[in-house]
Design a protein around this nucleic acid. Sequence first.
DNA 1: CAGGTTTCTTGGCACCCTAG
DNA 2: CTAGGGTGCCAAGAAACCTG
Length: 213
Amino acid sequence: MTEKNLEEVLYLLQLHYEAYANVKAFADKFKHPHPTDTRGWSQIIVSALTGIGGYERKKGPDLEDGSDVKAANCWDAIDTPRFNGCIKAGTQADVANSLASLDKMPYLFFVMWDVTEKTKKERCRIWVVRTQYDQRFRDMADLWYRQRAAGTIRSDNFQLHPPRNLDHNVFRNNCGVLEYPLLFEAHASNGKYSVKLADPTMLTRGCCKVIAN
DNA sequence: CAGGTTTCTTGGCACCCTAG
DNA sequence: CTAGGGTGCCAAGAAACCTG
């Protein structure tokens, strides 16, 4: 996460914002959803930030080192945005349905677009979980996998509820309420982004903290 | 408000067909 | 036989829909 990385990320965030802002008037006028590709933009921005390239073939992980990127966009969302399918379950992968899926993955990145709590500035935040080492996260995932194995949970969709339009870092679900390591944050003021936080130590030492169970 | 479920889109890939 | 085009199915992921 060098200055060069941050410069590139800012440029991409700016592109993303302008693409959104420019097309939104037309999306509204013709009553279509805005065509921003949250997944695609998020993956590129995470690569720009961390230097970890994409996984060239589309199936499998998102990044070349086996990491995954989850994305959610609150701008003009109809429903409550959240992170869907954060950990593998019910898929064909041989490690699906257990913590083994986390052992194969160095990082799990969460990218969310929302607005700041008080001033309502457009914002992009990126959290990172070190899936192989983060014991609090693994405990929570393990609880979910065990409830699913036991039939208490029937869904394959592991969901996390992020802090939408709120200035904190707590993601919730019934298996654990944790504070997540914030890697990056940028705000737009009058349509111009600036970096509010970029903390590369989260890639080596970040850990979730238990807020409640 | 959490979360289960459905919808919609995209890309990979196997398979089939045909022209050369 | 081989290269290339066409097609249809499957997996994945985010957003929307819905329920208690």
